[in-house]
């Protein structure tokens, strides 16, 4: 297995806003080794959301090259991108994005449905993951019957369902109170120590500080990239 999970080289993303061309990404290069736990921080308009969309296979760069887990994102067709999102990426959103009609268990099963996993296997895997995020007792609950923190745990279990190479979290604590947020970050640390590669996109430096590495962006550029542990040491 390669040691490098993400290799981004001179990424450029242009948007046309009326007459104006916006450089959302303006030559971004970085790499993330497997097993890393890092945060991409920056104010709104810094390009971090565009970066996340590209990392998640929802968007492709205008130029430059990004390879994630051996897949060159720019080269993939729509259908291959769907498969990439299903197999390689585990998404976690600020607003959880659980389907209200489905139970916690069924929400965790959802990505496996698109992966073509058989029902029995899906159910076992979903139950195991819910146990792992501490919701073994609430598998049959609907999202509305769960607290915000619990909903985000369900979403984390869902992100892990496809055994993704990369867990991608967009402001995962943004909708939670600070205590619950800390619990979620602790869960991330635990998952990372168990081997998961996690990238958090956030504007919150406190959240970034909980990770091992902070990549700071501004105006489409990376302005700093440092190991949090080494600074603390």
């Amino acid at each position: 297995m390669m040691a490098t999970l993400i290799e981004a080289n001179n990424l450029v993303k242009l948007y046309q806003m009326g007459d104006e061309t916006v450089h959302a990404l303006d030559g971004v290069s970085f790499s993330v080794p497997r097993g890393d736990y890092c945060a991409i921080v920056g104010p709104s308009g810094s390009g971090k959301s565009t970066m996340m969309n590209i990392l998640g296979g929802l968007d492709t760069p205008t130029s430059g090259r990004i390879v994630i887990d051996g897949a060159d994102i720019a080269e993939l067709s729509d259908e291959q991108l769907a498969g990439f999102r299903n197999k390689t990426i585990g998404f976690i959103f600020q607003s959880f994005n659980l389907l209200p009609r489905l139970s916690a268990l069924e929400n965790v099963e959802l990505p496996m449905i698109y992966g073509g996993v058989l029902p029995k296997e899906r159910r076992e895997r979903a139950a195991e993951l819910l146990h792992r995020v501490g919701l073994g007792e609430r598998m049959g609950h609907r999202p509305t019957q769960l607290s915000g923190g619990q909903q985000q745990r369900v979403a984390i279990a869902r992100a892990l369902a496809g055994r993704p190479a990369l867990v991608l979290a967009d402001e995962p604590t943004g909708a939670l109170d600070s205590n619950t947020g800390k619990e979620i970050l602790a869960l991330f640390s635990q998952l990372n120590s168990e081997g998961a590669t996690i990238v958090i996109v956030t504007h919150d430096h406190e959240v970034a500080a909980a990770t091992r590495r902070t990549i700071e962006m501004r105006d489409g550029h990376i302005v700093s990239d440092r190991q949090n542990g080494s600074r603390a040491a």
Binding site: L58, D78, E79, A82, K87, F91, L110, Y114, G162
Partner: peptide, 12 residues
């Protein structure tokens, strides 16, 4: 949007 992010193809 969520279903697509989780890997649903257009045809799905």
């Amino acid at each position: 949007g969520l279903r697509k992010a989780l890997g649903a193809r257009q045809s799905d």
